[in-house]
């Protein structure tokens, strides 16, 4: 392995890490601005222009707060919980193709940390590990509200993972690959998967809301019932880590939605731009296109949060197990029939 390869990958990883942190930080600002807009208020407007320095001020405040630890026999697990939540939220970004490639310094630089051919499974694996951060933290808090919040979060995430996985199966039958890079490449020129698999997209979107514990499925931190849910006992930057992990998750899941269903970095006329203005410019615009799409999804998350009230817990489980899972299985069967229609027609003699 040559050293330039290692440097190249390190730079890509560091940039992705920085961008994820920045996006998560400014999602908190955007959330408050969107909420204010939807409720006909002004929102944060003191720190900087339009309150742009608000996230920095919030971070500073969280760091300066006293770190309070409850009287729990599991101090270590209590400390580890937020770390796991944050680490798993950041790890998923490794397989996302942020753009095709840039031609710099005489070599092609892939705009992706790694292209493993089981990319989607990797995301599912990391997401399923992410439950531990909430569960361990909530349990180690030694508080019944935290415990109930943690159990709710975990059971919700496990339940919706099933529907999420099944909704993706229909998409994978069509694409024939698990690599996110190849899925992006297949969607070149407005062949976006959302036009072929709208039901799959809808199920995936709903499950993404449940996986990130966002309203209308934020029963894990349902204030009226559980105080603050699993982070009731947390203070200072540890609580900040949980909240930050939620926004990082939101950013990553928006990106995955954009990559899987909305063409990733592809935009109309990309091949024309690549021919006339050069590959680099075409791919830089591609990165921009991906960010426009994912910012749209982030806005959608916030829009839903400030519009739709919270579900009841049994409604949530009913939706997950009795509606979304059968629907995604039906979707898989329909997709299978459509893919094999030639063989079926030949068999029937039509």
């Amino acid at each position: 392995m040559d050293s330039t390869f290692i440097i190249e990958k390190s730079v890509v990883i560091l940039v992705v890490f920085g961008v994820t942190m920045l996006m998560a930080m400014y999602s908190t600002w955007a959330e408050r601005k969107v909420a204010a807009y939807l409720q006909d208020r002004v929102g944060p407007n003191r720190a900087g222009w339009g309150g742009l320095f608000q996230p920095l001020a919030d971070g500073l405040k969280l760091f300066a707060k006293e770190e309070f630890a409850p009287n729990t026999p599991n101090q270590f697990l209590f400390r580890v919980g937020p770390g796991i939540a944050m680490a798993t939220a950041l790890m998923t970004s490794a397989v996302i193709p942020w753009g095709d490639r840039l031609h710099l310094f005489g070599r092609d630089i892939l705009l992706q940390a790694t292209d493993i051919n089981v990319g989607i499974l990797y995301i599912f694996g990391i997401v399923s590990v992410g439950v531990y951060g909430i569960m361990i933290g909530g349990w180690a808090s030694n508080n019944k509200f935290s415990l109930i919040g943690a159990i709710r979060a975990a059971s919700q995430m496990v339940s919706y993972e099933v529907a999420m996985g099944l909704s993706i199966v229909a998409l994978l039958m069509m694409t024939g690959t698990l690599s996110l890079k190849e899925i992006s490449e297949q969607q070149a020129g407005m062949n976006w998967n959302v036009f072929y698999q709208p039901i799959s997209f809808l199920i995936f979107l709903i499950c993404a809301f449940a996986e990130t514990n966002r309203t209308p499925f934020d029963l894990a931190e349902c204030e009226t019932e559980l105080i603050g849910g699993y982070h009731t006992e947390y203070s200072s930057m540890r609580m900040g880590f949980y909240l930050f992990a939620e926004y990082a998750n939101m950013f990553i899941s928006s990106t995955i939605l954009a990559v899987l269903f909305f063409g990733g970095y592809n935009y109309p006329g990309m091949s024309w731009v690549a021919e006339n203005w050069g590959v680099n410019l075409a791919n830089i615009i591609g990165i921009g296109a991906l960010f426009v799409k994912l910012c749209g999804f982030i806005f959608f998350y916030m829009w839903v949060r400030w519009t739709i009230p919270r579900f009841r817990y049994d409604q949530l489980m009913h939706l997950g197990w009795r509606i979304l899972i059968p629907l995604s299985i039906i979707n898989i069967m329909i997709t299978g029939v459509v893919i094999l229609r030639g063989e079926i027609f030949a068999y029937l003699g039509w």
Binding site: F124, G125, S128, V129, V131, V158
Partner: peptide, 12 residues
């Protein structure tokens, strides 16, 4: 698959 099945489902 080991990660998803054993860690993500069974151990949870």
């Amino acid at each position: 698959v080991n990660l998803i099945v054993y860690i993500g489902a069974i151990m949870i």
